Amino acid sequence: MSSSTEFLSDFKDATQSVISTRRPWPQFLSLSSLSLPSSFSDATTRITQNFTFFLFNYTLIFLLVLLLTLLPHPLSILTFVALFAAWYFLYLAREGDEPLNLFNLVALNDMAVVVGLGFVTVVAMFVTNAWVNVVVSVIVWGLVVCFHGALRGTEDLVVDDHDSPYGPMLSGNPPPSGGGAGGYTRL
C-alpha cells in the first residue's frame, strides 16, 4: 500500500473515531434536562460530567466561536488553518511511539514537535494580531461550557453499565456467580 493510500486510510479512521464520540444536538440542547444545581459542588460535578460527555459538541462550539471572531481577519483564518494542518500532520496523525520522520531527513521526538509547533502557533497569533480574538474566543467558550454544564442535569447521561468493569456492581443485578451485588461475601 502506498504512503498516500495509507495516509488516507489513517485519516479516515481518525475521523471516524472522532465522529463516533459526538453526541446528538437534540440531547445536548434538551430543555427538559435543564435545572438549577443544588449547590456549588453539584454545579462543578455537572460541569465535569457534561464536559466529558459532550466534549465533541463543546469543541465544535469553540471552533465556531473562534471562526466568528476571526471573520474580519481572513489572513488569520488562513494562518490557523495552516497551523491546524501542521499540528495534525506532524503530531496528531502519527502512530503511538513512532518517531516523526520528516522527509527521511531528521527524526524528532514528541517534545520537540510540541515545543516547535507551540512556538510557531504563539508567534503566528502575535504576527497576525489574532491573539486578542483567541483570548476572547476562549473566554466566551469557557462561559458557555460552564453555563451549559452547570444548568444541564446529568441524570440522563448514564453510560451503559456493560462498558464499565464495575457494571454488575453498579447495576444492582447479581453477578454471574450468583451472589448479590453490594452484599458482603465471606472470604
Rank of each mutant, 00 (worst) to 15 (best):
C146W: 09
A150C: 08
P176D: 12
H73P: 00
M1N: 04
A150P: 09
G179M: 10
T44I: 15
N104H: 11
V113A: 03
A85Y: 05
S38V: 11
D163L: 10
S32G: 05
V122E: 08
A14C: 02
N173F: 14
T48K: 14
V159P: 09
G96N: 08
G118E: 02
V134D: 00
G142A: 13
D110G: 06
P176T: 09
A112L: 15
T45W: 15
S30Q: 11
S41G: 08
M1W: 05
E155R: 10
L66P: 09
T5G: 03
D110T: 15
D163V: 03
L187A: 07
L71N: 09
T21R: 04
V138P: 00
Y88C: 03
V65L: 14
L70A: 06
V144Y: 10
L63Y: 12
A14G: 05
W141V: 04
G153K: 01
F126V: 11
P174L: 03
L29Q: 01
S33L: 05
Q27R: 14
S30T: 05
G149T: 03
M125L: 12
A82I: 08
L108Y: 13
L66F: 15
L70K: 12
S41R: 01
I61C: 10
S33F: 02
N129D: 08
T69Q: 13
Q49T: 15
G178K: 11
V127Q: 04
I19K: 07
G153M: 11
A107D: 15
N109L: 09
V120Q: 00
F147P: 03
M111R: 14
A112Y: 15
S35I: 04
A43R: 01
W131S: 14
L64R: 11
T154F: 05
C146M: 10
V140T: 08
F62H: 13
M111I: 14
L67V: 11
I77Y: 05
M1L: 06
D110A: 10
L100Q: 03
S4F: 13
T48H: 15
G116V: 12
L66T: 13
A14W: 00
G149D: 05
F103I: 12
V106R: 02
G182F: 09
Q49L: 15
G149K: 02
V138G: 02
P175R: 10
A82M: 06
P175L: 10
T44F: 15
D160H: 08
F53R: 05
V158Q: 15
S3Y: 03
F40L: 09
M1Y: 05
F103S: 04
A130L: 00
V132S: 06
D160Q: 05
G179S: 14
M169L: 14
E95V: 13
L83G: 07
F84G: 11
Y91H: 14
R186Q: 03
L75H: 11
D163P: 01
Y58I: 00
L29N: 01
I47R: 04
F126T: 12
A86P: 09
T5S: 07
F62A: 13
I47P: 02
S76I: 02
G142W: 11
R186D: 06
F80D: 00
L117Q: 07
N173Y: 14
